[in-house]
């Protein structure tokens, strides 16, 4: 119920129903500890016998993500918008008895993120902001000879924080970080993204 309410709030914001004065378009690259290679079934039985003797998965890299966002500013302090991104992750399946790799797992995902921002500092030189994101996504996992599986993602970033520096009137650089909770995978995550933004 809470998830549905939050989703509606973010969707409402992302549709830009509020008055606005200027818009922002950005392209970003970053990483997110939402380890896509860890699918929920491996978290639902923590520490039991099967989790000790069955092969387990571990990530080999921070999953990179690339995407773009569009923010509509609402007055001077608020902004609302959406982002779309594509991410990958890789991990290995390890046999606990021999500690050897059985196969490599690759994951690809697409994500859609309604987001809001609150600018607590904003001027010609740049801005600093807090916000909140709802990450909705779909991932496909390739397990080599073991086959493929899919899952959906629903995660709420509760602590996004970032800043932007305007290099020119129309262009700037930004960096943002967030922390949140993956409802479906039931795990905490942190992320960091940076890129270029255009003031439209």
């Amino acid at each position: 119920m809470k998830q549905s309410a939050l989703f509606l709030i973010f969707l409402f914001c992302s549709l830009g129903v509020f008055a606005q004065t200027s818009n922002e378009l950005g392209f970003f690259f970053g990483g997110n500890s939402l380890r896509a290679s860890y699918f929920p079934e491996y978290y639902s039985h923590p520490g039991d016998l099967a989790s000790q003797y069955e092969p387990y998965f571990k990530d080999t890299s921070v999953p990179p993500v690339i995407g773009m966002y569009y923010i509509r500013n609402i007055g001077r302090r608020l902004g609302a918008g959406v982002s779309a991104s594509f991410g990958t992750a890789s991990g290995v399946c390890v046999d606990p008895a021999t500690n050897k790799t059985l196969y490599t797992r690759n994951v690809r995902g697409v994500y859609f993120t309604p987001r809001i921002r609150y600018y607590y500092m904003k001027g010609r030189a740049g801005a600093m902001f807090l916000g909140s994101n709802l990450l909705l996504g779909f991932e496909r996992q390739d397990n080599g000879a073991e086959g493929s599986v899919s899952r959906n993602i629903c995660a709420l970033s509760i602590l996004p924080y970032g800043f932007k520096i305007n290099l020119r009137e129309y262009i700037g650089l930004f960096l943002e970080t967030d922390a949140g909770f993956d409802f479906i995978g039931t795990k905490l995550f942190v992320g960091i993204r940076g890129g270029v933004s255009f003031n439209l």
Partner: peptide, 13 residues
């Protein structure tokens, strides 16, 4: 002892 408490009664350890 470890186990998944969210599962149905029949699946509990």
């Amino acid at each position: 002892f470890p186990g998944d408490r969210n599962y149905d009664e029949k699946d509990r350890y």
